[in-house]
Write a protein that binds this DNA or RNA. Structure first.
Lengths: 181, 181
DNA sequence: ATACTCATGTAAGCTGTTACATGATTCT
DNA sequence: AGAATCATGTAACAGCTTACATGAGTAT
């Protein structure tokens, strides 16, 4: 009965009006993927599991000859979703950052390689800002929560990019003073 | 032959002087776990795989009657590690943040519940700052890279906590103006 | 024609966690 | 005597990605 993390995202996406696996995946890729990803390999089987558990109800709604299965929340699904949103249990927070990992182990690396690493990290986050900006119009229409989280993402990745730039500057300064010319 | 992510961490930890699975796990838990975790269930089997692949060489070095298996890097292991640290391939970056996820879906939630969520998010990051501070002395001795990453972590989680505080203040302001008294 | 989008799904495999099992040594 | 630490490992399971398979409708 216990609702998986991905199951919760699916319930919430259905409440947001995404009624098919395809539509759910689309919105995930435009929004939550930055802090909670999900693949077709999770979504389709999970929808069936949620249906078995009675949290959603599915119905075939083909468009022309095109197959299509649409889901709505049952009353149990509604309360399971609300239960999760209101629960005060520990909030999962997991990060995997290969840039920080390399930086952590970068002591034996020459300064040029460390500088290069910081630049690549910075570019990664600048790229995130670009992606988030391209998604901004949709987020505005997606509700207050969606827009608040988008603004967080923009500010967050800008902050990281700035941090990288600072570290680059420090490294460049100490480097040129160590080997001037 | 391709070196797994956890395999790289293990090689790097061995170069840092952690020669046993137990010691590697200890240092992971004090340092990289904040951006790259690893469990015994990964570490011990991976050490054996690395040995089979010829990247590390293990030897039994019991302390008294206490079992102990110590590893060193082979030449192949050294170059595999250097190859990873210097490679310019895409840097993995993955985040799973249940706080942001709930915030994203928080539109139907009453203001009190949203405020509560922001507070819990803030406390989570304030707690991270406390944990990172407790680890600071060790990071200072762990080398420049370790200390740089620790300072990043401190600043990063402080920034997030500040963001949460700002959002709390905004919400409180709009709330009390909407329902004064 | 052909490429793209809509649409659903599965199978194999990889990664990772949790819980368990074992036993010696050291600290209180 | 009992708890904590040192030390190694496995088995079961949960979670997730990738690649594949299929096919209809739509735009160029």
């Amino acid at each position: 009965m216990d609702l998986s993390a991905t199951g919760r995202v699916i319930l919430a996406m259905i409440r947001k009006g995404r009624t098919t696996g395809y539509e759910i995946k689309q919105l995930v890729d435009l929004s939550t993927r930055f802090f909670w990803a999900a693949s077709y390999g999770q979504i389709y089987p999970e929808l069936r599991r949620l249906e078995e558990a009675g949290l959603v109800a599915g119905s075939e709604e083909p468009q022309g000859g095109r197959q299509r299965r649409s889901y709505r929340l049952t009353d149990d699904g509604e309360s399971a979703l609300d239960g999760w949103l209101r629960s005060t249990s520990e909030l999962t927070y997991e990060l995997r950052d290969e840039g920080l990992l390399k930086l952590f182990f970068s002591d034996e690396l020459p300064a040029a390689a460390r500088l290069n690493l910081l630049r690549r990290m910075r570019r990664r986050h600048e790229q995130m800002v670009v992606q988030l900006r391209s998604v901004e119009p949709g987020a505005r229409e997606g509700g207050a929560g969606a827009y608040q989280v988008l603004r967080y993402g923009l500010a967050h990745h800008r902050w990281i990019a700035d941090w990288c730039r600072e570290q680059e500057a420090e490294l460049e300064a100490s480097w040129s003073s160590a080997s001037p010319g």
